[in-house]
Design a protein around this nucleic acid. Structure first.
Lengths: 137, 137
DNA sequence: TTTCGTGCAAAGCATTTGCAAGTAG
DNA sequence: CTACTTGCAAATGCTTTGCACGAAA
């Protein structure tokens, strides 16, 4: 995959790509760093930043800026939406929502990316809230 | 407006709300600070952060996290989309795109916000690029 | 040998926090 | 009097930059 995009398949890049491909948590740089550092103690955040930027530029990953505080990364570049839980901060995929046609309203702009971001409370956090309420009674 | 939401209409808050209402640039905190500081030399960024957070919480403004680097603010809380030009960084409104129905896919989540973010190159930047190309010939 | 990739350290910004002084109800 | 608001200064956290060393083509 990397070679097809003109990127040298270095050990670090392979591990970062592999990590991203195996995660559904939409990790940020720090999560990737913390986990990979266990196996590769010499890895640096700079390399992770460099690699992720290259992956996004080459279309091998997507940057998800839903939280506004940090960039999260997604290996799945197919059409789908993202949900951010305001309570626990988790970002999850939402499949099956048809993105609207934006070309009609482009008005001379070139639209390269379309992101549908949903924010609210996830099911797990809702269940916890219910539990707390019941406990109070 | 402020009083209706339980916020004291202080001079700073009024000016910030007024500024936001009169701007279509989707300003970030720094833009608001730089402009307001000309008239109100004592205003602080802390107050702007505080006020914007209160406005968003009370539904008098929207936070636009399209760039992933900074939060931009929009006085228009009606349903519309946003476009970020990757070239010049400007954020513009896009009206008329019908947001997809997300309730069907909520799967137990409570969805409180729906944001459609478009990224690409704006018309102005495209025109500049054309100009450069023609100049080369 | 020239370009590319890595990683340390420092710098850069946006944002948050602690806190003291001022203001309004 | 009491709660809210302001704003300075410091701290935090994510990301970028400068740079030197090492590795690959």
């Amino acid at each position: 995959m990397l070679e097809a995009k003109g990127l040298r398949p270095s050990y670090q890049r392979l591990k970062i790509l592999e990590y991203l491909a195996g995660s559904k948590a939409h990790p940020n740089v720090d999560m990737i760093y913390e986990d990979l550092a266990k196996k590769i103690p010499t890895i640096s955040k700079t390399t992770i930043y460099n690699t992720l930027a290259a992956l996004v530029e080459k279309g091998l990953a997507r940057a998800v800026t839903i939280s506004g505080q940090e960039v999260r990364y997604d290996f799945d570049v197919s059409e789908h939406s993202h949900f951010l839980c305001k309570k626990c901060g988790r970002v999850t995929d939402v499949y099956g929502i048809k993105l609207p046609n934006t070309k009609e309203k482009a008005e001379g702009r070139v639209i390269e990316e379309v992101h549908l971001y949903l924010k609210g409370i996830c099911r797990e956090c809702l269940n916890k809230l219910k539990g707390v309420q019941n406990g109070k009674r």
